[in-house]
Amino acid sequence: MAKNKKAGWDGFSLKPRKEMPEGLWLSCPSCKNMLYKKTVDENLSVCPECRHHFRIDGPTRVRQLVDEGSLEELAQDLASSDPLAFVWGEQAYKNRIKADPDANSAHEAVLVGKAFIRGRGVILAAMDFSFLGGSMGMVVGEKFCRGVDRAIAENLPLVVVSCSGGARMHEGVVALQQMAKTSAALARLDEAGGLYISVLTDPTTGGVAASFSMLGDVIIAEPKALIGFTGPRVIQQTIKIELPEGFQRAEFLVEHGFVDMIVERKDLRSEIGRLIDYCGK
């Protein structure tokens, strides 16, 4: 027995190796099944076995949500001016923004545009977690506000799909103030009587959750999405207790009264359409 316990010796595994060529297969983090990527993509990036919703980027979200080819992007030509000239060690924030290969699409953490969802005109904002964790900086704030302006001007419902870790640290208080800025813009929309549907996806935390995400007239969440102010890891580190099962998940928020409904990705289009029929003008 002692022999087997030598460091680095774990015995042979009889299980088949789960290493596959990159990108063709992926493992579902929820049910651990190996899934063929194409099948998952065709299923709106939802695990066909356990209905786990994978994170999707902005353009994919738009493709899934709007009537084909109906998106007219707004204010796409914006980039951060790096107000703090943020550098750490050898790295600079400026280079991080530049590193994005395609400057004209998904250049920032949000994509705003006018589109149709099941034939109903909307202003849509879809956040993109793949760009610096979907964090909100000056560009996200500005694009969002311009979207709100357009929604007020054209009397269209606003649909926002949040997917973000919070405010963008690299822009300091400028990013923090975007919370106030977007909320103030929504106050204007509210006064104009516009409908605002907020869709929360995994994850919606920090400064984004504590501003426009939680101000929806109707708040929809995707199943099991992580939604909260402080991330679970920070809470655990601070108060040093085991967090309850399902803490800060969409179902938890429904239970505590902060989300109107949980809608699966495949039903999102029809549900938004129906809500617009009820509340839109």
Binding site: F229, T230, F258
Partner: peptide
């Protein structure tokens, strides 16, 4: 910073702050 606790999350820390931002702006 706002308190990072289980109770705070249960009672909607994010929503409370968000509403304040919106209401204070007007």
């Amino acid at each position: 910073g706002a308190y990072p606790g289980v109770g705070a999350e249960e009672r909607g820390q994010a929503q409370a702050i968000a509403v304040n931002l919106m209401e204070m702006s007007r």
